[in-house]
Nucleic acid binder design. Structure first.
Length: 854
DNA sequence: GCAAGGTC
């Protein structure tokens, strides 16, 4: 029997499509990467009985990147990234082993049906899948067609079955347009980012961002925030005047009347109107009218709207909202949270979804009534052909959900319930006329009370000709007020409107401009640009406004669409657009002084920032420690900058010096519970030995005789990771630590020992270096009256009590127990298949060192 | 250390 391989874009879709096509009779198993499943069933294809294998990828299989040295910032001029730098397609997520997985599943298959999402990205993934799978599939006989594309517009039985009955071919042009997009984004983004970062970080010490990035999506996103900031800054309040009259409607009740001119900006005119009305004793009703206010029930929820509501109503950032939604999805509370669709398919089981909520403590009554009285069809929304709108799948109470996200879940259910869209008459909540300011029908606001129409002050019954005595008439002087900073919800709307990012990437772009310290999130989730953000955007405006305008994306996309439609040649469009941006880049580089002038106003030069910390080995003057990101040392005399490890604290290390270059050592520490090691600022940036790399501290230094080096403080191979060595932290006493110089393993040992040294001798059993430990007489935990002991941290029975190797201990031979006992009990350790020996048997110190530098 | 786009 022949086999048909079918591939969807994500595991959830593979499952639902297989379920539909197999009519529920499929057998499923997990694939080798643990993320994707394979669903198998039999059926007919092209008139013959076949076995179907339905599986999926996880989004893109491949990603684009530069080759070799073009990834090294200091080896290549960013300008070269526009044309010379070669690119390659690499596996997007090596951990998923997607190519291998596809090949295992595709080997020996006769046909392939591509069920990737029906958009340009999906079309591109089709070819990524084909590249992986075609070489291992059976060869077609005499020109028989073996590659098919299923095109579907929704995940419903009819649509999926129709797609299967009318298979087409993948569209190469659409895929090419994505290839072009990837290459443009990569080359342009990286060139500008590297140039800006290097230029400004080399000049200023307080930018406080480790990356001055640029991108066709993130930069316009920042642009929106700064545009609002500029409006606020340039706002000039205007004084205006309002005529206000009060009439007495009853003995002790009065009514404020609104002025039909609303306001005037001329004081004398206001005064004139005041004079005209001031003498009137009575006000007469000229006409009455009655208006009903209605609020339309919401559309079914898609991702972007969910993000907006999460930000504006729940105060959750888009990234956090997506994470929460994904968790609710995997826990079965809501349907797939990534969708552009706001329209329920005709055959969607609205009542079934509603029934799930029939016992919910908050809205059970409303739901039961709807079920009994019948529901309205939801409003007609947009069907993007991806997934149904985000819908609650089962009832959830706050208590049931993770305590960290009770509100999100509650509202997820509330907002997304089909009940609101199905309930109430078409003009749901209504406001009565003057005499009856009541809500005629709450409609959907019954379960979304925060959406309800606010009730206005009650008005007295009146009709034309009625008169009321005038209480008071006056002119109020007021001022126009500036707009506020952009809310996240407003920003999402702007991005969507200008086609910046997609539902999935909008949260990423917003997150980016926060993390790069271009904007901060203020109360009410308003985005306030930082000085850095403002200067960048103003600089782009000055040099080349197109770099920050929202049209930068749409203009390129227009070109790309020509490729997709087959109206333009891929190479030509790519070449032309790259050329345009290459020119822009060169102009930007030539004009960078324009942006720099703005930088100078807000930031301080390297030489004027930071505080003196350690001495330069060249001029023996103090270098300044710049704490702002990226933290580094700067010698203003030599005009040199030395980068330091990030995310930790830096201190002077007892004024000790590196024997190689005379630089004073500094001590990096990740915190009291973490690890610390000394490093030489010069060696850290310019590795002294061939077997060392940039970014290595003394705990990785192979200097044969320096007292701080790995050679002297190393004990033996790390018990957790492949390549690391456990090194004594000489500064850690009296709570001594031994830490791996590669991974995060830290062993706490010999508490209160007043001295711990690494001995030149090694252990007879495991060949690790022995430790020589000295205790004070009063505090010694050693047997008898001993205060000193030399032994192996792994094997010595006396030390066993004094060393807390934690999870590290479980895989050392001394602590592992007999054969057959389960291994790797520690946190995070995968169980090894039986019979396969532990590959990480600790080696003796010298061979550990040798292995380390291979 | 870069982009943006998929998705886990």
């Amino acid at each position: 029997m022949k086999t048909v391989l079918m591939v969807a874009e994500k595991p959830s879709l593979a499952q639902s499509i297989a379920k539909i096509l197999s009519q529920g009779s499929m057998s499923s198993h997990k694939g080798l990467n643990g993320a994707c499943s394979v669903h198998e069933y039999t059926g007919t294809f092209a008139g013959q009985p076949v076995r179907f294998k339905m599986t999926s990828v996880c989004g893109h299989v491949m990603t684009l990147d530069f080759l070799g040295k073009y990834n090294k910032w200091d080896k290549v001029d960013p300008a070269e990234l526009f044309s010379q730098a070669p690119t390659e397609k690499r596996e997007a997520n090596p951990k998923l082993n997607m190519v291998k997985f596809l090949q295992v599943e595709g080997r020996g298959c006769d046909y392939i049906v591509l069920w990737l999402d029906c958009d340009k990205e999906g079309e591109n993934i089709c070819f990524e899948v084909l590249d992986a799978v075609l070489p291992v599939m059976n060869k077609a006989h005499c020109g028989e067609k073996t590659v098919f594309r299923a095109r579907f517009s929704s995940i419903t039985d009819t649509d999926i079955c129709n797609a299967m009955a009318r298979l087409g071919e993948p569209d190469h042009n659409e895929a090419l347009s994505v290839d072009a997009r990837q290459e443009l984004d990569l080359r342009i983004g990286c060139a500008f980012t590297r140039f800006q970062t290097k230029y400004f970080q080399g000049k200023y010490g307080d930018l406080d961002s480790s990356l001055i990035s640029f991108g066709p999506c993130q930069t316009p996103t920042l642009g929106f925030c700064v545009e609002r900031h500029d409006k606020i800054q340039s706002f000039k309040p205007e004084i205006y005047w309002v005529l206000q009259a009060k009439v007495n409607t009853d003995k002790d009740r009065s009514l404020l009347l609104d002025w039909d001119r609303v306001r005037v900006f001329d004081r004398e005119i206001a005064q004139m109107f005041l004079n005209l009305t001031k003498l009137e004793k009575e006000a007469q009703v000229e006409a009455t009218s009655k208006k009903e206010k209605a609020k339309q029930r919401p559309l079914a929820l898609n991702t972007v709207e969910m993000l907006r509501v999460a930000s504006s109503s729940l105060g959750m950032g888009p990234q956090h909202a997506m994470q929460t939604a994904e968790r609710l999805y995997t826990q079965g509370y809501i349907s797939y949270p990534r969708t552009e669709t706001t329209h329920y398919p005709e055959n969607f089981d609205l009542k079934g979804s509603l029934r799930q909520q029939a016992n919910h403590p908050y809205w059970a009554n409303v739901v039961k009534r709807l079920l009994a009285e019948g529901i309205n069809r939801p409003r007609k929304g947009h069907d993007a052909g991806d997934h149904p709108p985000i819908t609650p799948m089962r009832s959830a109470t706050e208590a049931e959900l993770d305590t960290s996200s009770p509100r999100s879940a509650t509202t997820a259910s509330t907002c997304r319930a089909p009940s609101p869209s199905g309930s109430g008459p078409s003009s749901s909540p209504a406001q009565g006329g003057p005499s009856s300011p009541q809500c005629v029908s709450p409609g959907f606001t019954e379960i979304m009370p925060w959406q309800s129409v606010p009730l206005e002050e009650s008005l007295p019954t009146c009709q034309r000709g009625d008169t009321f005595p005038v209480g008071e008439v006056k002119v109020l002087e007021k001022q126009t007020s500036p707009p506020d900073y952009l809310t996240e919800a407003e920003l999402i709307t702007l991005m969507e409107k200008h086609g910046i990012g997609t539902d999935a990437s909008i949260p990423v772009h917003i997150n980016n401009i926060c993390q790069r310290n271009y904007v901060t999130v203020e109360s009410g989730r308003r985005l306030k640009p930082t000085n850095l953000g403002i200067v960048l955007v103003h600089g782009y405006y000055k040099i080349d406004a197109e770099l920050v305008l929202p049209t930068i994306r749409s203009a390129v996309e227009k070109q790309l669409n020509l490729i997709a439609q087959g109206k333009a040649d891929y190479r030509q469009v790519l070449g032309h657009t790259l050329d345009v941006f290459k020119r822009k880049f060169h102009y930007f580089v030539d004009s960078i002084a324009g942006m720099d002038e703005l930088m100078e106003v807000s930031f301080s030069p390297l030489a004027a920032t930071g505080k003196p910390l350690s001495r330069c080995g060249k001029c023996h003057r103090f270098m300044k420690y710049i704490q702002a990101k990226p933290s580094r040392l700067h010698c203003s005399h030599c005009d040199e900058t030395y980068t330091l490890p990030q995310n930790g604290t830096i201190k002077l290390y007892k004024e000790l010096r590196c024997p190689l270059d005379d630089f004073e050592l500094v001590l990096w520490s990740s915190g009291s519970r973490g690890k610390s090691y000394p490093l030489c600022p010069y060696c850290y940036n310019h590795p002294p030995f061939r077997d060392m790399k940039k970014g290595m501290g003394c705990n990785e230094c192979t200097h044969p005789s320096c007292q701080h080096s790995l050679s002297l403080l190393g004990i033996g191979q790390c018990v957790e990771c492949e390549s690391g060595v456990l090194v004594l932290d000489p500064t850690s006493g009296p709570k001594w630590k031994v830490a791996c110089n590669k991974c995060n393993v830290v062993a706490h040992c010999f508490e209160n020992a007043h001295r711990v040294r690494v001995s030149a001798d090694t252990c007879n059993m495991c060949e690790a270096a022995l430790l020589d430990v000295d205790f004070n007489k009063a505090k010694s935990p050693l047997p008898g009256d001993e205060t000193q002991h030399v032994g192996c941290v792994f094997c010595d029975p006396v030390f066993q009590e004094l060393v807390e190797l934690k999870h590290a201990a479980s895989c050392h031979p001394m602590h592992r127990g007999g054969p057959g006992r389960r291994q790797g009990r520690g946190r995070g350790r995968a169980r090894r298949p039986p019979g396969k020996p532990n590959p990480r048997r600790p080696k003796d110190k010298m061979s550990a060192l040798a292995a380390y530098f291979v």
